[in-house]
């Protein structure tokens, strides 16, 4: 494990904690896309099938369980918690899941490293994770009025992806045979989706004003 990978995992964990903190303490999910959260739950459920078949390390198993439990809890909170669900902005969060899920699944059937159920599910989860943030970005663009925690949540997710790219570069130069085109390209696409958001995030940070996205 290198420093970029560890920092990436920690920012990913921090993003989830920020979101849970917002939901749990403020009892509000305003500005949070349920669609994106449901897609993440699907991403983790399909990627971590290897929990049942392979043991990598205690760290690996624990982190996988944390991401699974937290993503399903967030979905549960937004859908079912009697106070939190009232703050869900259903009319603005209109992105359709299958626009993303179906193409990703078809792509995973065609472009994968091995044609097995576990492998296709794993590849599908990579493609889906790359685009799962889209409903959230659309929602941010629509509501424009972004609270600090939501802004920090998206920023931390973007930071996590950027650090994973540094991790891949590091591993490519330090580990023999470390070449993973599917992981790299989907990860790069995912990070690029944050570029626009990052630009406005840093602008607002630099000028010390509230984050607002242009319509």
């Amino acid at each position: 494990m290198n420093i970029f990978r560890l920092a990436g995992d920690m920012t990913h964990l921090a993003s989830v904690l920020v979101l849970l903190l917002k939901i749990h303490t403020i009892k509000s999910c305003a500005g949070i896309s349920l669609k994106t959260q449901e897609l993440y739950a699907l991403v983790f459920a399909t990627r971590y099938l290897d929990l049942f078949t392979d043991y990598i390390s205690l760290y690996n198993t624990l982190m996988k369980l944390i991401f699974l439990v937290s993503s399903f809890s967030i979905v549960w909170y937004i859908r079912h918690h009697k106070i939190v669900r009232r703050s869900y902005d259903k009319d603005q969060d209109t992105f359709r899941h299958y626009f993303l899920v179906l193409p990703c699944f078809l792509l995973a059937l065609v472009i994968n490293e091995k044609f097995t159920v576990k492998e296709i599910m794993w590849t599908f989860s990579l493609y889906l994770e790359a685009v799962a943030i889209l409903p959230q970005l659309v929602l941010l663009q629509r509501t424009r009025n972004i609270d600090n925690l939501t802004g920090q949540y998206v920023f931390l997710l973007g930071a996590y992806r950027s650090l994973y790219i540094l991790n891949w570069i590091y591993r490519y130069f330090t580990e023999p045979h470390y070449v993973h085109w599917i992981t790299w390209i989907s990860g790069l696409v995912q990070t690029l989706l944050y570029a626009d958001f990052f630009y406005y995030y840093f602008q607002s940070w630099k000028n010390n004003v509230k984050l607002e996205l242009p319509a």
Binding site: R5, D9, H12, D50, D54, I56, S57, N60, M63, K64, F67, N112, E113, K114, T116, K118, E119, W122, Y164, N167, R171, E175, H177, Y178, H180, T183
Partner: peptide, 10 residues
């Protein structure tokens, strides 16, 4: 792919 190095990532 499954069972190789990239699978230690999350």
């Amino acid at each position: 792919s499954v069972n190789d190095d990239v699978h230690d990532e999350l």
